[in-house]
C-alpha cells in the first residue's frame, strides 16, 4: 500500500477536526472535533509503525497511550463543561468571556450584564472555590450587585 493514502487521510481528518474546533460554538461539539484530530494522529502513528517495521512497536504503543489520554481528556473536559453549564446556564464558548479584556468598558458591561443575570441564583450553591474566584473579579461582582 502506498504510504500516501493513510498520511493524506490523516491530514484531511485533522483539518476537518481543525475546522470543527474553530467553527463550533457548543463546547461538547468542540470536544468531538478534538477527538477527530487525535484520531488523525493515531492513524499516522499506526501507518508509520507498519511502514518502519519497528521492533519496539513504538507507534502502536504510543497509539494506545494516546487513546488512553484521549479518554482521560474527554472525561475531564466533560466534567469542566458540565460545571460551566451548571454555573452559567450555558455551554456556548462564545459567551464565556469573563476573562476578556474589554476595550470599551460601557459596551462590555452592557453586553455582559444580561449574561450575568442568571449567575447569582446558581452562584449561591457554588462550592467555596469558585465563589471566592468570582469575588476576586471586580467588574463581575459589581455587575452582579447592580
Amino acid at each position: 500500500m502506498h504510504l500516501a493514502y493513510p498520511a493524506v487521510l490523516a491530514v484531511l481528518l485533522f483539518c476537518v477536526g481543525l475546522y470543527g474546533v474553530l467553527a463550533r460554538r457548543n463546547a461538547i461539539l468542540v470536544l468531538m472535533a478534538v477527538e477527530l484530530m487525535l484520531n488523525a494522529v493515531n492513524i499516522n502513528l499506526v501507518a508509520f509503525d507498519v511502514w518502519l517495521r519497528d521492533t519496539l512497536h513504538a507507534g502502536q504503543a504510543l497509539t494506545l497511550f494516546t487513546i488512553a489520554i484521549a479518554a482521560a481528556e474527554i472525561g475531564i473536559g466533560l466534567a469542566i463543561v458540565l460545571l460551566v453549564h451548571r454555573n452559567r446556564g450555558s455551554s456556548d464558548i462564545d459567551r464565556l468571556r469573563d476573562l476578556r479584556e474589554s476595550d470599551s468598558p460601557s459596551g462590555g458591561d452592557s453586553g455582559g450584564g444580561s449574561r450575568a443575570e442568571k449567575s447569582p441564583a446558581s452562584a449561591t450553591d457554588n462550592d467555596a472555590e469558585s465563589g471566592s474566584d468570582q469575588q476576586v473579579q471586580g467588574p463581575a461582582a459589581g455587575r452582579r450587585h447592580a
Partner: peptide
C-alpha cells in the same frame, strides 16, 4: 441554528489552507 459560531468562514479558510 446556533451550533456554528460566527467565525465559520474564517475557520473554513484556515482549515482549507492547512489541508
Amino acid at each position: 441554528p446556533d451550533a456554528d459560531s460566527g467565525n465559520r468562514w474564517a475557520a473554513l479558510a484556515v482549515s482549507v489552507a492547512a489541508a
